[in-house]
Amino acid sequence: MSLLSVRDLVVTYATRAGPVRAVDGVNLDVPAGSITGLVGESGCGKSTLGRALMGVLPDAGRIAGGQIMFEGTDIAALSAPARRAIAWRRLSFIPQTAMNALDPVQRLRAQMLEVLIERGGLGKADALARASELFHLVGLDPIRLSDYPHQFSGGMRQRASIALALALEPALVIADEPVTALDVIVQRQVLDVMRNLQARLGLAMILVTHDIAVVAYACDRVAVMYAGRIVESGPVADVLENPLHPYTMGLTHAFPDLYGDDMTLVPIDGTPPSLLHPPAGCRFAARCPFVQPRCAEEPPVTDGDHHAACWRIDEAAELRALAAIPATWMPK
């Protein structure tokens, strides 16, 4: 059974123009001890999904439907205090701007101790020992616990926020774009820290990113999100080598590769639909080169270990061949 199992989750934001369905019927399974990549373009709802799982949506946002089964309980149905009790111990969230979210006027030690003592109920001495251990775990010298965040580089701050997130030994860490602002060498080091932790502590992790190369490097499974929905998910190898959804196929050709042959990159024409008035059928229909009349009418259904929300999933092999030809993606 999965550690986390999300069913038909809907999250809306109240706005002047009406409710924005930022997460609109998401199904997602995260097995224990695995890293799941969550990829998708800006505004597709990745952060919203992460925040909804953690129960830290902004004021305008609310869970409008669905289930979040975590270790066998539907935490979406719990009262706020009951939820917080679980969320703080078993779940952990590294927000998108975590690097800059560390308190600038407090030493790292004070920030770690606050979490360990107040939320974790540890004694002072134990908390100190644990803080050193955590710094060690993420590859930081425990001496630097007495530093202020501004004395750290971006990568070190990111490690420190990972250490904070691990303080209470969560079962699942949701990391929202932990490496996006870092440059390649630091990115690689931070990703290695995460892979290490997963291996050593048996941690499960959701790693939000928009870089499929990062997913390929660090994740076991991947969920591709598009306009509020998961359009494809499965083991990384299957999804990247044999994508079933045209959007995933498009992404794999939109990306320069350090070693690939000299093919022309192909952009996906157009922009995602508005989440204020999402289309009735397939969310990708307006940009999809393989669209058929029924795509626009009904949303495609999906199921299975490696699955995709596409009506033409049975023809995936032929579509993949077509998707490899740049002309396929030319705007009509």
Binding site: I185, Q187, D192, A213, L240
Partner: peptide, 23 residues
């Protein structure tokens, strides 16, 4: 060069040949 991830599952994950950080 070694740090750049590639979009394929099969790739080099060996320790980077570099120490410390810029700072």
């Amino acid at each position: 060069v070694a740090a750049v991830p590639v979009p394929h599952v099969a790739q080099d994950r060996a320790q980077l040949p570099i120490r410390g950080s810029l700072s």
